[in-house]
Simulated scan of single mutants.
Amino acid sequence: MSLVINHNLMAMNAARNLSSSYGNLSTSVRRLSSGLRVGAASDDAAGLAIRELMRSDIAALNQGVRNANDAISLIQTADGALGVIDEKLIRMKELAEQAATGTYTSDQRLIIDSEYQAMASEITRIANSTDFNGIHLLNGNLSGATHDGSGLVSTGKLKVHFGSANDCSEDYYYIRIGTSTASALGVGSQAAEGKGKSISTQSAAQAALEGIENAIISKDKIRANLGALQNRLENTISNLQIQSENLQAAESRISDVDVSSEMTEFTRQQILTQAAVAMLSQANSLPRMAMQLLGG
């Protein structure tokens, strides 16, 4: 290489290597400080795209867990109210048994029937007032066979969504709760049909025993269905948590930095940067030799 003074090619070469090493050192510092191997699309374009899809699925699955837990809370609210209704039906059967015997007069049976009707009214009140987050559970709003969520207020059976897409077999199922008012159960004066309308006479009281038995069975079917749904939701939550955990592990392998490997690279680039700075200093002093030839 000729000794020239117009261009310091060795200094240019050292400066280029310094810039490269310093850039790599900066990347290592960013990765170590953030904990991310992929912090920008330029780090790994394909990896970034896969990571963001995984992150969206992880977020959706975690929200799905919360959705399923909310549905369990809803079911427990309905089941608790049905437990109270159960107590009312048991009392009504006790009253019907009392009125069915011949040792009471008609006036006394009317008094017994007044409590019987009060219990039926309370059942209807509980069914109409039980709600979860503004959604009425036992008044028949969720008993429909078809779900329609196109309006501001969904109608029909309740849709519990927990998956990251919208495939019926994978991402959601429905909660359907039968009507639990006294008339729907066939007891009380408002019942359209059935044997549990009244216990004001001995024969009516005897018939009411069967009617109340049928009401208890109908109520138990609703509670059994809710219990099965709660168990299913609990299993769904376990599965969602496993999915989320495994996706998080996969996302970590793509996105997170290997600290030990990156620290080795950081040290390497740090040494190269220091060497480049030293050589740039030396290269900048070399043209002075030309001054010696010029008699400087």
Rank of each mutant, 00 (worst) to 15 (best):
T101G: 09
S56V: 03
M12T: 11
R125P: 10
A68D: 11
G47H: 09
G35Q: 02
N13M: 03
H7P: 01
S56C: 01
M119A: 15
I112W: 01
S28F: 07
Y116T: 02
N13P: 00
A100F: 05
L110W: 00
I5Y: 06
I111H: 03
G134M: 13
E122T: 15
G102N: 04
N69I: 06
T130E: 13
I75V: 15
R66Y: 08
L32N: 06
T27N: 02
N69A: 12
D43K: 02
R30D: 15
D86E: 10
M10L: 15
D131Q: 15
A71C: 13
D57H: 04
D131Y: 02
N13L: 05
N133I: 04
D107H: 02
T103M: 03
M92R: 00
E115W: 00
L82W: 02
R51L: 09
G35W: 11
S28T: 13
A45P: 09
S28Q: 14
G83S: 04
N133S: 11
A127N: 11
S21E: 02
S33E: 12
I58P: 00
A15F: 11
S33C: 08
D86N: 07
T27Q: 03
D44N: 09
I111D: 14
S21P: 01
N133H: 05
V65Q: 08
E94C: 05
M10T: 12
A68L: 13
S42H: 02
F132H: 06
N6Y: 08
D86F: 01
A68M: 12
R37P: 04
A40M: 07
T130N: 11
A59V: 13
T77G: 09
G83Q: 03
R91S: 13
L18S: 05
G23V: 05
I126P: 10
G83H: 01
N69S: 12
D131E: 15
T101W: 03
K88C: 14
R55E: 13
A45C: 00
R109S: 03
A96F: 10
R91E: 15
A118W: 03
E97T: 15
D70V: 01
L18M: 09
S73Y: 02
N133E: 11
Q117A: 05
S129V: 03
N6M: 07
V65E: 13
